[in-house]
């Protein structure tokens, strides 16, 4: 089945250049990207994950609040019965926080210097027909 990947940003973060580039690159890798842009609420994004039946959700952060936002997002997804959908993060994520983020339940972290081919391979592997 075609892999569906939901991409967006939370809160006041507006640095969308990176995630838009990723949307295009995933498109060119044959993935259907549901792009929901900036200024989403945690609840709104979690509901979009359910309604769009996303195989994976990717959130880009350039602000410092990413641990709290990610914790809330995963909690909201669990509450809506979508706790099994993997979450990946990109943008400016400090390596010191990787451990905490993985404890929260983040499956993939792609900070500065990440290779696009690694992200593509990661997203492809999360397609449900590939599990």
């Amino acid at each position: 089945m075609t892999v569906r990947c939901l991409l967006g940003m939370l809160g006041t973060d507006v640095h969308s250049k990176g995630i838009r580039t990723l949307a295009q690159i995933l498109r060119d890798a044959g993935i259907e990207v549901i792009y929901i842009g900036e200024h989403n609420t945690v609840e709104g994004m979690a509901r979009a994950v359910v309604d769009e039946d996303a195989d994976i959700v990717g959130v880009s952060f350039s602000s410092a609040a990413y641990i709290e936002y990610t914790r809330q997002l995963i909690a909201a997804m669990k509450r809506l019965g979508a706790g099994d959908v993997p979450v990946m993060l990109g943008g400016i994520i400090h390596p010191d926080d990787y451990g905490v983020l993985r404890e929260i339940g983040v499956s993939g972290i792609f900070g500065p210097g990440s290779l696009m081919e690694d992200i593509i391979a990661f997203v492809r592997a999360k397609g449900r027909s590939n599990i």
């Binding site: 949307a23 060119d28 890798a29 044959g30 259907e32 549901i34 929901i36 994004m45």
Partner: peptide, 22 residues
């Protein structure tokens, strides 16, 4: 639309309707 080249897509219509997200 789907990409005629890769079969992928960027589906972006939700952005315009985000106030109904919850």
């Amino acid at each position: 639309p789907s990409s005629p080249v890769s079969g992928g897509a960027v589906l972006g219509d939700r952005i315009r309707m985000s106030r109904h997200a919850e």
